[in-house]
Amino acid sequence: MEQAIEKWPGKIYELIIGATKETGGTRSKVVKIGGSNTLPFLFFEGENPNPPAIAMEVWDIEPTDWPDVLKNEYGSVLNDPTQWAKKCETLGADLICFRLKSAEPDGKNASSTEVAKTVKDVLSATSLPMLIIGCGNNEKDSSIIMDVSQAAKGENCLLGMATKENYKTFTAAAQSGGHSLIAETPLDINLEKQLNILITDMGFGSDRLVIHPSTGGLGYGFEYCYTIIERTRLAALSGDKMMSQPIITFVGQETWKTKECRADESEKPEWGPLKQRGILWELTTAAGYIQAGADVIVMNHPAVVKEVKNYIQKLIK
């Protein structure tokens, strides 16, 4: 039987995260993402040179709203970001996703000098390439990102989140520190593309961007997220350079806030043991996004990280 092979004119940009000694940084390795010229895992049709990378979250402040099932996995390292990062490294993470939650104006409201210092500390504690994500408040993130970028200068990190509101400061910061950027928009292919255009209009390389389409977890609009990622990918493969960036999804963040991962067993006995629920939820969500075409998966639970790594190995074999 004849095989119908699709030949796409486009290709996803290949992005390198991290810099080793040779390239002016201090990382022990770099992580490459993207580079595909076909849909995920269709090896008979084209190339998928880089498997999806797994980033594990590390916060600069102890997460108070994480459920115990998750907290217990980390124990005392949760209030020490350097130890936490080291632990993730041993757990098999490809990347560290460092969140600057302490900067939240309604919380600790840490200054840019304070957060820049922890960034440096974590960079010395781990040798993995890093993602550095702000606290989520546009105004505050704009005010700290320049110092953060300088603190990590030369390490070729992935900075986030550049949004339509703050992209000018973020782009300038990433440019000056030699980092790449995560462009975050609401879940809409046009909005994704618009932000990419705005950022590249500032002279920033279109090959130094990662798309975050604001996805949801399993059961929370997952199917729609899946199709948007797929449409983004199809646009890229059809030759749209402003959609040809790798895609990141924050699977852990979307999983552990759902009621399915939090509701007590006495409340929902029919849902089964709480301890397994979150794990299964995070695993299923991650598997789904990997199939959709995500290039970086940001995760939380160590057991799931292990399982997903196995899953990826099976897919690329």
């Binding site: 046009n190 593309k193 618009q194 255009i197």
Partner: peptide
Amino acid sequence: MNNYTASLFLPHTNL
């Protein structure tokens, strides 16, 4: 709706 969001840009999302 898809076309509309794409056109909320100068001159258009699809340059």
